[in-house]
């Protein structure tokens, strides 16, 4: 869908009829059903408070997953995002605490921390990208390695315990998570902004087209004058940038970082991407689907919190089932569209 004009899109839909619609709308339908189930189990599900809460929570995974959509579309994978978030959060806290004496506890300190987070995110992404492209190591291996490194760094910085943000700074920084604008918390605004930028970048720019081409067939991309290494590195940098945005809105929530910060975020982000219909082996990416995927994952947890029928401890089970079912549906969708022996 990503590469057609509106008129062609309509034509395709006509020709593939059900299958194309199903593939695009599947995650949306799933989310609607989930919401309906949530509402039936407990009408408080659609209360304004719960909906804002749900959106705010999905912002972290959602923002990271937008970055992951680029990496996966270009045929890569980034396992390090959860650890990267923890490490960035850790460094941010240490630096902001250290700046209390010189810059005080005001906005300037927080801004310095945020700026630093962005630089760290870009740097970490560049390292992942350079090692996969220039170092010619499988992305899975590289990011498995950096995942371990970042995770142990944050444990080391925290000396095995928890890094806490200075109480005064926390007061300054707090509104970034807890307050909002036009009734929506700031994290949701960040999520929306990242989503829109991501969508435009993937669907409307040459960069997005190049990501798709590289993920489909790297050789074709190379022969088509695409600077494959540069584009692939860029996807990891975008991923790093998304991680820093997520971290910036995450730190004021608890005001601390520890070895357990961001654990398994990488898997949730990848899950959101896959549920959204992006192909894991690359070549086809959907930002809209990714956002729905992130919302679906958060909604499951939220519903389980609201009901006694299924233990909250089974959250992981439900998420796992949803991922598997989503991929199964996407696959059977291919056979719907085609005649058996075509």
């Amino acid at each position: 869908m990503t590469m057609m004009t509106a008129s062609q899109e309509a034509a395709t839909k006509k020709s593939r009829r059900f299958s194309a619609d199903f593939k695009t709308l599947g995650p949306a339908v799933a989310l609607l059903i989930l919401c309906l189930v949530g509402f039936l189990l407990n009408p408080a599900f659609i209360s304004e408070g719960n909906i804002t809460n749900l959106l705010t929570r999905s912002a972290f995974i959602g923002i990271i997953a937008v970055g992951a959509t680029f990496v996966i579309t270009a045929g890569g994978i980034d396992l390090s995002v959860g650890s990267m978030a923890a490490a960035i959060a850790g460094v941010m806290i240490i630096v902001m605490d250290g700046l209390v004496d010189t810059l005080g506890t005001g906005v300037l300190t927080v801004l310095t921390g945020c700026g630093l987070a962005i630089l760290l995110g870009i740097g970490a992404g560049w390292i992942n990208g350079a090692l996969t492209t220039k170092g010619k190591i499988e992305a899975f291996i590289v990011t498995l390695g950096t995942m371990g490194i970042y995770r142990s760094l944050v444990t080391y910085f925290a000396d095995g315990g928890t890094l806490s943000l200075d109480f005064e700074i926390r007061g300054t920084y707090r509104p970034v998570y807890y307050e909002g604008f036009l009734g929506l918390p700031f994290p949701v605004w960040v999520f929306i902004a990242v989503a829109i930028c991501g969508w435009l970048l993937l669907n409307r720019t040459a960069f997005g087209r190049y990501c798709t081409a590289i993920g489909s067939n790297e050789a074709v991309a190379r022969y088509s004058a695409i600077k494959v290494d540069r584009i692939k590195t860029m996807t990891y940098i975008i991923q790093g940038l998304c991680v820093s945005f997520a971290t910036i809105i995450y730190v004021p929530r608890l005001g601390s970082a520890s070895a357990t910060t961001g654990v398994l975020w990488e898997l949730e982000a990848i899950a959101a991407v896959i549920i959204g219909g992006t192909v894991l082996k690359g070549g086809y990416g959907r930002i809209g689907g990714t956002i729905l995927g992130a919302l679906i994952l958060t909604t499951i947890g939220n519903i389980l919190n609201f009901t006694d029928m299924i233990s909250n401890y089974l959250n992981g089970t439900m998420q796992g089932l949803i991922i598997i079912v989503a991929v199964l549906l996407q696959r059977s969708d291919w056979t719907f569209g085609k005649k058996k022996d075509a």
């Binding site: 590469m3 040459a206 087209r209 798709t212 081409a213 050789a219 074709v220």
Partner: peptide, 27 residues
């Protein structure tokens, strides 16, 4: 090495000459 077999004709046609189709950073 020549064509993206899972993609449609349009993105394949313009892939090599894509910079020509950029207006205001958009395709």
């Amino acid at each position: 090495k020549g064509l993206l077999l899972q993609k449609q004709m349009q993105p394949n046609l313009t892939l090599l000459a894509l910079p020509k189709f950029i207006r205001n950073f958009m395709i």
